[in-house]
């Protein structure tokens, strides 16, 4: 009796995740090793279970690395990976630069103000991501609000929409809450007497910040950066809506291969390579998540 509930409680979500999360990745891997064909679903081969061992052997023989060869041979994809990583890296650094002072300021407010500000950071997260990105189209487009503002100030127009800069703005804007929240959590729980102790020991405030506050907030910095960087690399909506043809990102490439070119095996191969690129940061994030969540145990 004692063990029935726990077993069941673990088994159901476990089974769900195996079927709907782990199994699909194996399918992607398998498909990436298949030939493309113009049928729907547009790929061969499929295992012919009726053929018994021979059918399976035929299936294995048909697997090949053609899609990966094509992927390596095409500099377009290599460039897309590099530019995705660069966008994500720059976006993460910018989000950190904007987010840290925000989180720091919030942590120093009175408790009542603090929870209000925290709410204000979370609220955009609850509103549609797509809508928030879309709002920037109206601001950045040539006859948009930004140029109207610049015109009033007598400054020349800045045509930002469909440029890499627009993608960068969109990334920082969309992921800022993901950066601020872990930073705030790390800063808020810091004991203010530490700073008093530092001051008492003769440290000026700016030194105390670099010697006490910042080092103690590093777990928050790492969490925030990973939480921004990983999804940024695979981002689709932002480069699609705000970036021009020059803003290559890998998430968009997968989408194009899949929906425009209908080359499912090739899309799968691109996805597998993206996943491999992200394995290290994802594992780092997992570790950090497990540590944070299971600290109370």
């Amino acid at each position: 009796m004692k063990r029935t509930l726990p077993r069941l409680s673990a088994l159901i979500p476990y089974a769900w995740l195996l079927v709907f999360f782990a199994l699909p990745f194996l399918l992607v891997l398998r498909l990436s090793l298949s030939d493309s064909a113009l049928a729907i679903p547009p790929y061969t081969p499929r295992i012919d279970w009726g053929g018994g061992i021979d059918g399976v052997r035929a299936f294995i023989d048909a697997l090949d690395f053609d899609t990966y060869k094509a992927l390596v041979g095409d500099s377009l994809y290599f460039n897309a990976y590099i530019s995705s990583l660069r966008f994500a890296l720059e976006g993460t650094v910018l989000a950190l630069l904007v987010g840290y002072p925000m989180a720091y300021g919030m942590a120093r407010c009175k408790p009542g103000t603090r929870s209000l500000l925290l709410m204000a950071v979370i609220l955009p997260f609850w509103t549609s991501f797509l809508i928030r990105v879309y709002a920037w189209v109206g601001i950045l487009k040539p006859q948009g609000l930004l140029n109207a503002g610049l015109g009033l100030l007598g400054l020349p127009d800045a045509d930002l929409l469909y440029t890499p800069a627009a993608v960068q703005i969109g990334l920082v804007y969309s992921y800022l809450p993901f950066m601020v929240l872990p930073l705030y959590a790390a800063l808020e729980k810091q004991d203010h007497t530490l700073l008093e102790a530092a001051a008492d020991l003769g440290s000026p405030p700016w030194k105390s910040f670099w010697q006490v506050t910042f080092p103690l907030s590093i777990p928050g910095v790492i969490a925030g950066c990973l939480l921004c960087f990983i999804p940024m690399v695979g981002e689709f909506v932002i480069p699609d809506l705000l970036g021009g043809p020059g803003s290559l990102m890998i998430g968009r490439s997968i989408w194009m291969e899949f929906f425009a070119n209908r080359d499912w095996p090739f899309a799968s191969a691109v996805a597998i390579v993206l996943l491999i690129t992200l394995v290290v940061p994802i594992v780092l994030y997992q570790r950090q998540q497990v540590k944070a969540l299971e600290a109370g145990r």
């Binding site: 709907f20 399918l27 695979g234 799968s268 992200l278 497990v290």
Partner: peptide
Amino acid sequence: TLFSGMSYAPLVMPEVIMGLSLLLLFVA
């Protein structure tokens, strides 16, 4: 380990990959 990995991974997994993989599952 596998369980906790699968439990948190969707938080950061690029949506394009999740979408593609789930589609293949439903087709299969």
